[in-house]
Design a protein around this nucleic acid. Structure first.
Length: 334
DNA sequence: TAATTATGACGAC
DNA sequence: TCGTCCTAATTAC
C-alpha cells in the first residue's frame, strides 16, 4: 500500500475538500450499503491519519475507518482543491495530454485533467494508472465530463459533496465506528512520528524494540511497534542504518534504534510533501534527475535483487521473511 | 484469457 | 506457517 505517507496525503485532501461539508455517502458496489446509510447526509467534521489508518469523522459521533491494505486506493474527481501543505501534481498539469493519457513517473499520485484543465481526477493509494478517460471530443465533440462521474469498477464507498467526489476501492478495512472504538484502535498502534515527534514517542519506540528478541525487520513492519512503515520503507530504513535485518531488536544498539526513529520521521515527511517514496537523499545532478524520473532509480535496495549495491557493488539479496519480500545488502548491512 | 503481482493484516492451526 | 480477504494492472501464454 500506500504506506504511511499516502494515508497522510489522502487525509489532507479530505481536510481540504470535505471537512465542513455535507456529504452524500453511498456504496456503488453495494458491499458497504449499511455503513453508507449510517453516514449519508451528515457533515464531515474531522479527518485523521494514524499510521496506515484513516478516520473520517461525521457529525453525530460517527467515524469511518479505512485501511487501504495492499492495493486499496482513493480516486478524487471534480473541482479538487489541492492541499497547500503537500506538493501537488501542479508541475505536471501543464503537460497533461488532452486525451487524458495517464501521467506517471515522478509523482505516484496520478492526475488527469480534461481539456479545459478544470475537472480533475487524482488517485492516491496503490500504484496504478488513473483510469483512462479518453476525451469523447475526438469523436463526439463533447469534452466535458459529467459530475459526478459514473462509478468505474468496484467502488466500495463514494463520498460526494457539491463539487468533489471521492471513490474508495479495494480497502482491507472500511467500517463505521463510535468514538470509543476509534480511540481503542488508535491506542493499539505504535507511535506515528508525524503525529507525535515528542521524546515520549521516541522512548516508546526505543524501549519496545530493545525489549524484543524479534528480528528488527519484523519489528519495523509491526504496526503496534511503530505506525506507518511498510515493505518499501522497511527495507530502505534498514539499509540507511547499515543494519542487518535479522538482528534481534534487543541487540540493536540504542543509538541505532533512535536513528531509525528519526530517519522514519524524515522519510515520512518527505513522502507526505512530495508524494514519492524518495529514500535516497543527498542526490545531485544526473542521479537526482534519474531518481525523480524513474521509480527504479529511487531506492537503495527495494526491488533491486540481483543488482549491484549502489554503495559497495555486492548483489542485493531477496529473501522471504514473514510472508513478505525483504531486500537488503549483505555487505553494507552485515 | 489466465496467471502473476502489489507499498497489508488477520485468524486458524 | 499457512490460508484468506480486498482489486486492478501487467505479464505470460
Amino acid at each position: 500500500m500506500p504506506e504511511g505517507h499516502s494515508v497522510h496525503r489522502i487525509t489532507r485532501q479530505f481536510e481540504r475538500n470535505f471537512v465542513g461539508h455535507l456529504v452524500h455517502v453511498s456504496s456503488p458496489q453495494g458491499r458497504f450499503a449499511e455503513g453508507a446509510a449510517l453516514l449519508d447526509g451528515r457533515r464531515m467534521t474531522d479527518a485523521r491519519a494514524v499510521g496506515k489508518q484513516m478516520f473520517l469523522g461525521f457529525e453525530g459521533d460517527r467515524w469511518l475507518r479505512v485501511h487501504l491494505g495492499i492495493y486499496g486506493a482513493w480516486d478524487f474527481a471534480g473541482d479538487i482543491l489541492l492541499d497547500p501543505t503537500i506538493a501537488s501534481a501542479n508541475g505536471r498539469m501543464g503537460q497533461t495530454n488532452m486525451r487524458g493519457t495517464f501521467l506517471d513517473g515522478p509523482n505516484p499520485d496520478a492526475v488527469v485533467l480534461d481539456a479545459a484543465g478544470e475537472n480533475s481526477l487524482t488517485s492516491i493509494g496503490a500504484p496504478r494508472r488513473t483510469r483512462l478517460r479518453m476525451a469523447e471530443s475526438e469523436k463526439e465533440g463533447d469534452t466535458a465530463w459529467s459530475f459526478p462521474p459514473e462509478p468505474v469498477g468496484q467502488v466500495r464507498v463514494r463520498l460526494l459533496t457539491d463539487t468533489v467526489c471521492a471513490d474508495l476501492r479495494g480497502p482491507t478495512a472500511c467500517e463505521v465506528l463510535d468514538p470509543a472504538q476509534v480511540e481503542a484502535t488508535v491506542a493499539r498502534l505504535g507511535p506515528d512520528p508525524l503525529l507525535d515527534d515528542s521524546a515520549e514517542a521516541e522512548e516508546r519506540f526505543v524501549s519496545t524494540v530493545r525489549r524484543k528478541p524479534t528480528p528488527i525487520a519484523l519489528l519495523l513492519m509491526d504496526q503496534n511497534v511503530v505506525a506507518g512503515i511498510g515493505n518499501v520503507y522497511r527495507a530502505e530504513l534498514l539499509f540507511r542504518a547499515g543494519l542487518n535485518p535479522h538482528t534481534p531488536g534487543r541487540l540493536v544498539p540504542e543509538e541505532t534504534v533512535r536513528e531509525l526513529w528519526h530517519d522514519w520521521g524524515r522519510l515520512l515527511r518527505v513522502g507526505v510533501e512530495t508524494g514519492q517514496m524518495m529514500t535516497m537523499d543527498g542526490l545531485e545532478g544526473e542521479a537526482y534527475r534519474a531518481a525523480m524520473a524513474n521509480r527504479d532509480d529511487r531506492h537503495w535496495v527495494y526491488k533491486r535483487e540481483g543488482l549491484p549495491c549502489r554503495v559497495c557493488g555486492t548483489n542485493i539479496v531477496l529473501e522471504e521473511l514473514g510472508a513478505r519480500k525483504l531486500y537488503w545488502c549483505p555487505s553494507c548491512q552485515a
